[in-house]
Design a protein around this nucleic acid. Structure first.
Lengths: 199, 199
DNA sequence: TGTACATCAGTGAACGCGCGTTCACTGATGTAC
DNA sequence: TGTACATCAGTGAACGCGCGTTCACTGATGTAC
């Protein structure tokens, strides 16, 4: 609560650690985040973070959870409630963009074995999963909405990782969004016979 | 060449390092592979591997390249030259199975930032990429085969990662293969109008 | 077939590093009277 | 409003660890004569 700019007490070290962790991930791109580096960045002794996180794993989970929330916000910003395939594609593009804009964060969120019992984290990923399900269901009433939303999520998630890994052309934002839109359109056409099938 | 079971010279330390690395990845599941651990496992001093690999990065790339080749072999084993959607789905299932059976290896191959200039590695990933392209093209003559094969790969790759991360039900092999087959079928139906569209 | 010697693949000690975590501590904050 | 004291959030030294990598070395191998 207190401002405490350069006092003995930090004020809100918990949040400062998260911020520092985020910055380090953005900067050096490596997902190898250390507690000590975070403390250093937050301008605090190496052991101070232990007041707020029981161990490294806990901090990492908190960072990942924040990433999930941010991803969710980005998706909503791309389109608050998509109802057409095009609008859904815009959300898909936002997903892949998030991965490309925050590669290290994305890897922490998805590509690192992590504590599956962390509540914060589990809740955040469940929210994302539910969110994907909802919008897919909203866009088209498929026979098996569960399977379809899984497929759509997987498609987009795979595009994100392949782009991250340099396996696809990510040279321009347009190239990326073109691929994503194309892939999503192809998939949705299958369950929306009124669309241009076989064109 | 020499057998050299317990002699001063190892015989084929290069291959032994790869084997040791593979074993470590299988065992502790973590993708954090150290040169020293590999040397220890190979029963050799910590510095011996430097005779065969200039640095840790090089060994890691060699391991990843071997992983790519093994993945390719698994795919071919699933079906040598698929021509129907069902056969392609079988290959897709093999891809996801590989990820689930060798999670740490899969992460080394795909989820770790790595030297993009390593020849061996680049060649191996290009081969996989070309292979996917070929079989997709063989299964259905799409208007834009490039885009479609990208979409199929991404779909399968995404399923693999989501399963790895526990975001989907991977409790039984049947659950996994069911999801994979369903997703692939949904995607292929879009570009094969003669199939059961809108069923 | 035997010997001299270059080459090659290992060894093992040592370097400096950053890490996660513990511990006893101390300074600041806030509350009860 | 002022003081005593509990609580809380930091500090900093220290631990033991495994790591990547270097270096000078040594033992085995293979080749030339």
């Amino acid at each position: 609560m207190s401002r405490a700019s350069d006092s003995y007490h930090h004020g809100d070290l918990r949040a400062a650690c998260l911020r520092a962790a985020r910055e380090l991930l953005e900067e050096d791109g490596s997902a190898g985040l250390s507690l000590r580096a975070v403390a250093r960045r937050a301008g605090v002794s190496a052991t101070a973070p232990y007041r707020h996180y029981p161990d490294r794993e806990a901090l990492l989970s908190a960072v990942a959870a924040e990433g999930y929330r941010e991803l969710a916000a980005d998706l909503t910003a791309a389109h608050p409630s998509p109802t057409t395939p095009d609008e859904l594609a815009a959300v898909a593009v936002a997903y892949v963009r998030f991965a490309l804009d925050h590669p290290a964060m994305f890897r922490v969120m998805f590509a690192e074995p992590c504590d599956p019992t962390n509540e914060d984290r589990v809740a955040a990923t469940a929210a994302i999963s539910q969110y994907v399900r909802d919008i897919v269901r909203g866009v088209l009433p498929a026979a098996d909405p569960e399977a379809l939303s899984t497929a759509v999520w997987a498609l987009v998630h795979g595009l994100a990782f392949l782009h991250l890994d340099g396996k696809l052309d990510a040279s321009t934002p347009e190239a990326v969004s073109g691929q994503v839109r194309g892939a999503v359109a192809a998939m949705l056409a299958a369950t929306a016979p009124s669309a241009q099938v076989g064109a």
